[in-house]
Design a protein around this nucleic acid. Sequence first.
DNA 1: CTATAATAGTGTCATAATAACACTATAAGG
DNA 2: CCTTATAGTGTTATTATGACACTATTATAG
Lengths: 242, 242
Amino acid sequence: MSETAETYDASKYERPSVTVDVVIFTLLDSRLHVLLVQRKHWPYADHWAIPGGFVNMDESLETAARRELAEETGVHDLYLEQLYTFGEPGRDPRTRVISVAYFALVRSEEQHLQVSDESNDVRWFSVDELPSPLAFDHHKILRFAIDRLRSKLEYTTLAFQLLPTEFTLPALKRIYEEILGEKLDKANFYRKLRDSDLLEDTGKFLEGRGRPARLYRFRDSRVEGDFVFRHREARVKVKQEQ
Amino acid sequence: MSETAETYDASKYERPSVTVDVVIFTLLDSRLHVLLVQRKHWPYADHWAIPGGFVNMDESLETAARRELAEETGVHDLYLEQLYTFGEPGRDPRTRVISVAYFALVRSEEQHLQVSDESNDVRWFSVDELPSPLAFDHHKILRFAIDRLRSKLEYTTLAFQLLPTEFTLPALKRIYEEILGEKLDKANFYRKLRDSDLLEDTGKFLEGRGRPARLYRFRDSRVEGDFVFRHREARVKVKQEQ
DNA sequence: CTATAATAGTGTCATAATAACACTATAAGG
DNA sequence: CCTTATAGTGTTATTATGACACTATTATAG
């Protein structure tokens, strides 16, 4: 960030390439899935990869993320959150690539996937059945994203983004259970939600197998943010995170 | 992340520059301070800025952050944490610059500041008395860092990094109070610490004005990590973060 | 040499949050 | 109309929290 004069020469230093990569989560068949594209070209041809691509000179990182995602997968209209920036030398065989990773949650029913001519295929993969190996260091990025997702679930309303406008408490509880990988107590979970004042009763019901479930909606239309909602208390413990 | 063949031409796309910027906090006269350097050259000559600089092609982002910090300020030996990546077009008048920001806490007594020939001066500033305007979008980065620091204080042992190996409970409490900007209850704060099992009694005492304070040390030498320690319970509330 | 100020540290208790689990409610299907 | 499946509520023992009053140990002023 220091240069000698107005005579700054932009081409003086060799520059790394900058990409954005986007980890998109959804719930499919009640399982957490992630969106991957199958690469067509070198490097890592035929390998599955997190969608992403190079940042143009005149667009913001988030705009680039949105553009690449739409181009490569057809996914659009989502709340993106910056995850981490990966920049180890050697992570891309072509040249030095620094990759700003984003992540987001979407409702898969609302997304129509489409394959670009840069890839063979675009597909949702259960996070428990990922293809291996993934391209580049994408396995690491994915791990990072899943960890972050779990941890943010503990104190935000992130999970609500996976639900339609109107939803039932059991559905929300199932999402938490699937992502956290553990069973939650119904009574305690519902009580937290009632006390949180986040939900609004629609008066409607969802018919199903047993007793119909009451339909709620998020009180605020701002589901796209990070609201504080602890589904349970975080205990004091000593452990390393990340 | 997709290219047509082994014929990939690294110079084909115009590339942004990548810098690392490092927000260093310390406690000085019981106040939270941040390290700034006064720029010597265009752009923003004579403005104060967060230390940082361009990433070399063969070094990792964190290595670059460490190197720049040592070169520009003399500060070394610290636990760095990635903060956020800022990449709006136009944030640097020279060219498109994407900046990966890091932050860290240090004990100022252990650091000997030294000015590089790229800057006029290096100095600690109280976060309440920052020079204005700062270079580039560094004010925004600083805000971001302070917010993150406060929020991580709530559930990590980050603050312990500001203390020497052996320290007293009142000293630790003062750090929390200064950074959070609010008074904490002694009894409750000490109880949390006792229950957390993070500390070890050294058997020694620190003499002072009144009753001598018992000296503790962190039980683990791994103060340089992110341990979970909630100095108080986080309450359920609905608010937007960041 | 005693009183006071200053700082460190402990005890207590009403209230709230938590976790566990037993219970009731309402539907479908045989 | 009995069984199963799902939704939803009540209850209670235990623990965590916040507030605040109390005790302890030193230096220093007079």
